[in-house]
């Protein structure tokens, strides 16, 4: 079985569940590690947990200038930089910046945004992963869910066409928001993602993103 990672999990202080508690449940579900990506804040992780809890930040902003300022602030300080996507201008600005690792829910949490050929090309150029947020499918119903699913289907087409990196995440805010890898794979099938694509989006691609960060961190230390 491959090593699975969930790279978008929210924990204390943003929510009232500590990171260790999230990790305990995630490991029971079969994950090898999780990344805590709180909105505009990053957590300190105890030394013994650093190989399984990765520190990240999810930048949430309304304007491009604020986004650039925050990227400058977090880049180099936090290993994993995620941008809270959705709005067209934010998606574009984020995908143009190579310091970003993941664009979270580019179709927004309610299916309001979308990707296009230009944006996905930037993502490939800058090595930014496109996230598919399964929490949006879980939490929505009826029209909202239909819209989100069709947006994800479109995004998946772009990802396939340009061979962009895609990851699946739970975007969990509590232990009840987490889902096991096989559950996420079944959910991804709802918008047409094949099994092997989904497995890669949960194991190889997150691992590749994390390894890139480790190498970068090591380079900084050597300098």
């Amino acid at each position: 079985m491959p090593n699975f990672f969930d790279l978008n999990v929210h924990a204390y202080p943003e929510t009232d569940v500590p990171a260790e508690e999230m990790l305990r449940v995630a490991i029971r579900y079969g994950y090898a590690g999780i990344a805590i990506t709180n909105h505009d804040d990053f957590v300190e992780v105890r030394k013994e947990n650093q190989s399984v809890i990765y520190r990240g930040v999810e930048i949430r902003t309304k304007s491009v200038s604020e986004l650039n300022r925050k990227i400058k602030h977090y880049a180099g300080k936090v290993p994993l930089v995620v941008v809270h996507g959705g709005a067209e201008n934010i998606n574009l600005a984020a995908l143009k910046d190579h310091r970003i690792d993941i664009l979270a829910h580019p179709c927004g949490e309610k299916g309001e945004g979308s990707l296009n050929h230009v944006l996905v090309r930037y993502a490939v150029e800058n090595g930014i992963a496109i996230e598919f947020n399964m929490n949006a499918i879980i939490q929505s119903r009826r029209g909202d869910r239909a819209r989100i699913l069709s947006r994800m289907r479109d995004n998946l087409e772009f990802v396939r066409k340009y061979k962009a990196m895609a990851i699946l995440t739970s975007n969990a805010c509590s232990i009840y928001g987490l889902r096991a890898p096989r559950e996420l794979i079944a959910l991804a099938a709802l918008f047409g993602m094949r099994r092997e694509e989904a497995v890669r989006a949960l194991s190889d691609v997150p691992l590749c993103i994390l390894e890139r960060r480790w190498n970068k961190a090591r380079e900084v230390e050597l300098l």
Partner: peptide
């Protein structure tokens, strides 16, 4: 697999948070 996805979509019952695996 379809039922697995439907079970994964259940997030709360009467306001109580749940998760099914």
């Amino acid at each position: 697999e379809a039922i697995r996805a439907a079970l994964a979509c259940i997030h709360s019952v009467n306001g109580v948070q749940i998760a099914i695996t």
